[in-house]
Design a protein around this nucleic acid. Structure first.
Lengths: 213, 213
DNA sequence: CCGTGCGTACCATATTTTGGGTATTGAAAA
DNA sequence: TTTTCAATACCCAAAATATGGTACGCACGG
């Protein structure tokens, strides 16, 4: 038996959804409200297993709502159910801690499947959403400069790594067990190979992307 | 009608999968092989719509395989179908350009659903995989320092932005229309507020996360 | 055996960055 | 009105970084 809550300000849609989901005998909709703030007191008393959350809500948005709920109850599972397919909303919701993201055009069966998945610690994304998420990943990977292309030696990679961690020359030299002056030589070579002329450029162009040692 | 290819080295599993999928009258398995290299010549002649790809393959891995296929045929849809749930494989496959990622324990219906989704330009991830992907996103967001907490003024944010783009002081001063000396004052304030003492630290701790202006 | 590349080390110098002051203006808050 | 604060500007000195050299030992491939 899964206890559900629905936060959705369109009352007709909310009622319909509630009714349809409860056709499944394992689902019980314990709370339904049109606004996060209004819902929280009920959660204090009776915490559901899964929350279905709209995004376009009065007072505070569903994205802010997820964040607040997750702060209070990190194990609560939240399924976003909205019409929005924009990257901003999607990534906002995910970063806020949403466990699933479906679109209102998804069929009720999909929503049920999502509820059970979330309850199991799994996630569920609409196919369009999933495509955007995967595309985002791939873009990041493509944008990452390919270190191999720069023919850095092992030592140079080691130093570069520490460089973009923000360490000073003294510190780096010490950690790499080489003299400050030797580090100078390496720096010259690294800058030449990477075609940069300052630490700032290194950090900007290779910072973050260099976990690919 | 969707034309399918299967790259999977376990012949029994491959045959069974092929048979089961073709029970659906909209699926035709045009090629089935146990190795990417072997498959490519067939694709040159007869390109399928969707490829089902294992990861643990002889010769080259499925991840490298996706990459190669996507290089040649960017619009080809690739569905990873494997037993691996490790982050390394998942993100490797996604970065290589996979359009979907299911586990061998997923039921045939799920695989069929995935095939049709991919054909439509959508994606499909197993719930466990999706959870890991979403968790990764959230971690990144949590790791990102919240700029709001540092009480930076507008000007300071503007400067910080340029700083982590790797610009030099002269350049920044010019672009912000202030004197080099004024920039000095701002730098002192920024470093104090962020609690750092060098540009390297700034880049390391705030680089990349600061698109959240 | 010779050349090439890597890692090591040192010298010298120019430039940039960091960090310590002080000070004026205008706008907003108390 | 007085205070506070963002933004501006300048001076100065210490520290770090960037860039040019030269040089030695070692391993590896031809």
């Amino acid at each position: 038996m899964i206890n559900l809550a629905i936060i959705e300000d369109n009352i007709e849609y909310r009622n319909a959804l509630s009714k349809i989901l409860q056709r499944n005998s394992n689902i019980y909709v314990m709370h339904e409200k049109g606004d996060c703030t209004e819902m929280i007191p009920y959660f204090e008393v009776d915490l559901p297993d899964v929350v279905i959350m709209d995004i376009d809500l009065p007072e505070i948005s569903g994205i802010e709502g997820v964040w607040q709920l997750k702060q209070k109850w990190p194990d609560l599972k939240v399924l976003m159910l909205t019409v929005f397919e924009e990257a901003e909303k999607i990534f906002g919701a995910i970063k806020a801690g949403a466990n699933g993201y479906l679109l209102k055009k998804d069929p009720p069966d999909k929503i049920l499947e999502a509820i059970f998945s979330l309850q199991n610690g799994e996630s569920m994304m609409n196919g369009i959403i999933a495509a955007k998420v995967m595309e985002y990943f791939k873009k990041q990977a493509d944008a990452a400069p390919k270190m191999e292309a720069y023919h850095l030696t092992e030592k140079e990679k080691e130093i570069l790594n520490k460089l973009i961690q923000g360490l000073g020359y003294k510190q780096i030299a010490h950690e790499c067990s080489i003299a400050r002056e030797t580090l100078n030589t390496h720096m010259k070579n690294i800058y030449r190979k990477l075609n940069v002329h300052s630490r700032g450029e290194v950090a900007a162009r290779f910072g973050g992307h260099f976990n690919n040692l």
